[in-house]
Design a protein around this nucleic acid. Structure first.
Lengths: 328, 328
DNA sequence: GGGTTTTCTGAAAACGATTTCTGAAACGCG
DNA sequence: CGCGTTTCAGAAATCGTTTTCAGAAAACCC
């Protein structure tokens, strides 16, 4: 029942080949082109993408597989990626893995079945390891989480530097026993932990950190135990905004006042980090840039497949607020 | 270069037809099925979805077009929809319109080109009107925003009731001059306004509301003006969580203390509405239910196309917090 | 045991577009 | 004017599957 290219051809009095050429800007006389356009309008023809993709052997689709859409960091990056893609006339398939390696495997398989042109991916640690053994069959740019061996293009934050900045900021304000809470599922968490450890060591202070699953609730319960123990830290650095909300709740529950009893600093400049009282000190990531640059790297690789692998390291901006006021 | 069904057939010593049947659970002897599975594993075969969709004339894809992924309401609904879809063996194409009718039109066209099996859609007012004139060519379930004429299945919140509950809550706490701020892009905003007006009228009080574009910044600047004028309200009801953050910022900027100078209530129980001081009184929406039920309606319609149109109205839950403490 | 189902398999058509190939007409040029 | 070249249009092949069709073998039934 649906109108196909043959129907348009018949309506325009030309061959299907001519219709195809007219629509894709091929060599067609102005006269026929006009007839075709009129016929398209008259019939309401919409090309069948499945057929087009099959014949032309290109999907015109890029895959975007992120770890957690509830994390505003990823929604922001997604928007930037989508904008770039649509501007370039490409479609985007957006998938959400929930930091679950199984779902990652599932989606990677799906991407392959869709024959995507390229992939932008924020993998878990587990999948990242497999990725260095078995290369993906399509051009891939990793975001937020870098491949260690330099096998894939990637665009990431300078995690060590950013965390170091937070630590030094706290030290300057007079804090000495500075705890850390980092995600255990991504290399990002580990890199931030390393930056944290390095900065403390450089200052001659002792690191004291924990790792936990990447959810606000996991953070809250981990911290609840820590806060009620005798070795509770004076200050805390956490590795993302989910952890920040968990930390605030845990502090409230334990009756700790911020920053008097506990200074707090973390990542991602969400709206609410400013609205909460006191405001939270955070590292703001250049989210739009991350998305845009990832697409830029991907397009370059598509055009020139044998480019050397590039790693783009962007730096964050420290936004100081009341949660890290000077120690009294 | 990529391995196709013929290669698998050759490796398994059977015909392509048999491979296809073996993989789709058709009538194949156990012996051949095992051979095929072995061959699939050996060759690493992944079916080409474009070819499959073209031949079988079904995309196995449902479209999900939402208004704003930065709004956690929609990310939550999306997750529920995706879960249901994948459980049913369907894929999801997720699109973000930014409440922009042009992008909506673009995406609807794309959906048609993808020949999606069904659509779940949160349209703007503008598009909603067009939708009642020209029916979409695929089964559609509207979410969050109902079609007035009853042309499409939909699942929505009982906006009038929920807003009424907020208004009565404020009246009980002693507030009389209760302002309102509602989004102008969606029918949701208007329904909430109507509920607000009705509740105030019922109590013999005078409504005093404004409409604005659906963004936190628009809300903030609208309110900035209002707060500095002599007819500033004692309490404010706003129609979503973006407006809530805008309202808190505007109140801070104007030096208004919540709830002493301004009580505040709104929609969507985000994490931060509890973390902010004082906590914000909100209507919590049954987000998972909305997504799940939308998929349920869609599947039913796919199975039984001539079902009467159904409208599912879910009710919200009022979460009272400090921002609407009793008037002193 | 012969005829009728049933069960399984392979050959070939089909899905709806793009692309290659072929040819006709138009054009350029000495 | 004649010959090569270019330009444009249509016929037909093609993409990689699924599905129809037809047939062989097995199973079933008096």
């Amino acid at each position: 029942m649906t109108v196909g290219i043959k129907d348009v051809a018949k309506a325009a009095g030309v061959s299907p080949a001519t219709v195809s050429r007219a629509l894709s800007g091929g060599p067609v006389s102005d006269e026929l082109r006009a007839q075709v356009e009129a016929a398209v309008k008259a019939t309401g023809y919409r090309p069948n993408l499945a057929a087009r993709r099959l014949r032309s052997q290109q999907s015109g689709t890029i895959g975007l597989v992120v770890a957690d859409l509830r994390n505003p960091f990823f929604t922001a990056v997604s928007r930037a990626v989508e904008d770039s893609a649509y501007r370039a006339g490409m479609r985007v398939i957006l998938c959400n893995t929930d930091e679950d390696p199984e779902r990652e495997a599932l989606y990677l398989q799906l991407m392959q079945e869709e024959r995507i042109t390229g992939l932008i991916f924020a993998p878990t640690r587990t999948t990242l390891e497999q990725l260095s053994r078995r290369r993906l069959e399509f051009p891939t740019v990793l975001i937020d989480r870098a491949s260690p061996a330099g096998l894939y293009d990637c665009v990431v934050l300078d995690n060590a530097a950013a965390t170091g900045e937070l630590v030094r900021h706290l030290i300057e304000r007079g804090y000495r026993h500075i705890g850390g809470l980092f995600g255990n599922a991504s290399v990002t968490g580990l890199e931030r932990r390393d930056g944290y450890v390095a900065a403390l060591n450089a200052a001659g202070l002792k690191p004291d950190f924990r790792l936990c699953a990447p959810s606000a609730d996991a953070a809250r319960s981990t911290l609840a135990g820590w806060f009620s123990s005798p070795d509770r830290p004076e200050a805390l650095v956490v590795s993302n905004s989910l952890f920040l909300s968990g930390a605030v709740r845990a502090a409230r529950a334990a009756g700790l006042s911020i920053p008097r009893d506990l200074a707090l600093a973390g990542f991602d400049n969400e709206v609410w980090t400013e609205l909460v009282e006191p405001g939270l000190t955070v590292i703001e990531q250049p989210v739009e840039d991350i998305g845009r640059q990832a697409m830029a790297l991907l397009f370059e690789r598509l055009q020139t497949p044998h480019l050397p692998v590039r790693k783009l390291v962007l730096s964050g901006r420290c936004v100081a607020r009341g949660s890290t006021a000077a120690r009294v």
